Simulated assay, not measured.
Amino acid sequence: MIAIKALSIWLIILVLAIANGVLRESVFTPVFGFTSGLLLSGVLLSVMILVVAFVALPWLGAQRRSQLAGIGLFWLLLTLLFEFTFGWAQGKSLSVILEAYIFKDGNLWPIILLVTAVSPCVAARLRRMLLLGKNGRK
């Protein structure tokens, strides 16, 4: 059941990532330029992924660190599968697809992938910290 929920959350992340790409191309890049637009878009997407993980965590029902890490790796695998399949479907060569995986001209894609993988664990840690803070414990 957790896997189906994790897939559902990843689909939300996918929709947000696509919307972020549209925002980048239609607003950020024209207003701020290519490099700044790419940087802003990367930071925004990373934050959105963390927020989604934070909000979805109670619904997911994952309690153990191994479950959280597994969800993050599942999301990473789905993201990579989507990116490579989408690139291939567009007729892009492997070398062109792999260009997204280098830090160049403000590209933060490798960091976004890392955030995707660790977001369930980070979100759980943030939730614990906030919960402990509300209870007055340190």
Rank of each mutant, 00 (worst) to 15 (best):
R128L: 15
I112Q: 10
V51S: 13
I49Q: 00
G133H: 02
I49G: 04
T29S: 07
S66V: 08
S26D: 08
V31Y: 15
V115H: 01
V118E: 02
I97D: 07
K5Q: 13
L14N: 11
W88R: 10
L77V: 03
I102F: 09
L76M: 14
L80V: 03
S95Q: 07
A3P: 14
A3K: 12
Y101K: 01
I4L: 15
S46Y: 03
C121A: 11
S119T: 00
L80I: 12
G21A: 14
F74H: 14
F32P: 14
L130M: 03
I2R: 15
E99S: 13
F54Q: 12
L108I: 05
V47S: 14
L78W: 11
I4V: 07
E99V: 06
F82R: 12
I18T: 10
M1R: 13
G91S: 11
K5W: 09
T116V: 03
V115W: 02
F86P: 06
K134H: 13
A62D: 05
F34W: 07
R65I: 08
T116Y: 01
I111S: 04
R64A: 09
W88L: 14
A19W: 09
F28R: 11
G72R: 03
L39I: 07
L78H: 08
P110Q: 08
I12L: 15
S119G: 00
A69S: 03
A3H: 12
D105M: 01
L78P: 11
A3M: 01
L113R: 06
G42Q: 09
